[in-house]
């Protein structure tokens, strides 16, 4: 009988052995792929280390920094202007007036249906061909500058996307919220600002972050209309040196920028949805 009694000490010690991890096909594939990535990254670091050129860095690092600043300021300015523009567009999309809603619809359809690069060309080169008319109105100074043209086209483009985000977010708040506020006698504008918007922004936060990242990535095309953003200076450096590391450094900078933003957004989302976690 005593055999069946297990002392408490032995019970804690005698765990079942962890099952053996067999070398299954997915495991082998996974290890090979991770190995390939590691080799690629080690190779990249080794290449950048070998190719490190004091002269090149001294010459182009400051231009990269100023290019990065151009990218960031261009994106921030256009996203903010676009956010302001998106409000009337979103309201127009939700309007009961047929004419207003169809104008807003076509605006959104045009800017979402055509490539950003074609829009930039249309505004920079296309409107640029009306130089005489623009000079007559006094707007030529604005449209002559590639930076302003890029800003205008980006703002118009992102306004269309942000209007859809805003509309979807406002729609996602149930009608009962409006009705509840109305039954308390709260005016419509106050309802919108204090009840609807805070709830809508939680829904809109993630799409807004995606839009910001898309704009940062999309902004690289301004290099094609001779704006010297990060990509523009990279193209310049490559065309002068034919050194491939110029592109690799830019890739690293863009990746870090986008990843940092993505993590910032994850943090923000977990922070403002604290009250929703059960």
């Amino acid at each position: 009988m005593t055999d069946n009694v297990i002392s408490p000490a032995a019970a804690t010690v005698r765990r079942p052995p962890s099952p053996p991890k067999p070398w299954t096909k997915p495991r082998i594939t996974g290890y090979v792929l991770v190995g390939l990535w590691t080799a690629l990254i080690v190779g990249l670091v080794y290449y950048l280390f070998r190719a490190w050129d004091r002269e090149l860095v001294d010459k182009y690092a400051p231009t990269y920094l100023s290019g990065l600043w151009t990218t960031i300021s261009l994106v921030l300015a256009s996203v903010i202007i676009g956010a302001v523009l998106s409000v009337p567009v979103a309201l127009g999309r939700m309007s009961k007036n047929r004419i207003i809603s169809s104008i807003a619809y076509f605006y959104v359809y045009f800017f979402r249906g055509t490539p950003l690069i074609a829009q930039v060309f249309l505004i920079y080169y296309g409107l640029g061909s009306f130089s005489k008319e623009l000079q007559a109105v006094g707007l030529w100074g604005f449209f002559r500058d590639a930076w302003y043209c890029a800003l205008l086209s980006f703002a118009l483009n992102t306004a269309a996307y942000q209007a859809e985000i805003l509309r979807g977010a406002i729609r996602s708040v149930s009608v009962g919220q409006w009705e509840g506020a109305a039954s308390l006698g709260i005016p419509k504008f106050v309802t919108f600002r204090k009840i609807i918007l805070p709830q809508a922004l939680i829904v809109a936060l993630r799409p807004y972050g995606n839009e910001l990242i898309l704009m940062i990535k999309g902004s690289a095309i301004v290099a094609l209309i001779s704006v010297y953003d990060l990509m523009g200076y990279t193209k310049l450096a490559y065309s002068r040196t034919f050194d491939f590391q110029t592109y690799l450094w830019t890739a690293i900078i863009y990746l870090l920028l986008v990843e940092a933003l993505r993590h910032l957004w994850d943090w923000m989302e977990s922070r403002i949805t604290r009250h929703l976690i059960r």
Binding site: L33, V258, E259
Partner: peptide, 28 residues
């Protein structure tokens, strides 16, 4: 997949190619 190494390798792929501007990927 349930294999962590396979997951890691696939996630790296997405992270890298979603983070790079399309134009830069093209030039690269």
């Amino acid at each position: 997949s349930e294999e962590p190494s396979l997951k890691l390798a696939s996630n790296m792929y997405t992270t890298i190619f979603r983070g790079l501007p399309e134009l830069l990927t093209l030039f690269l």
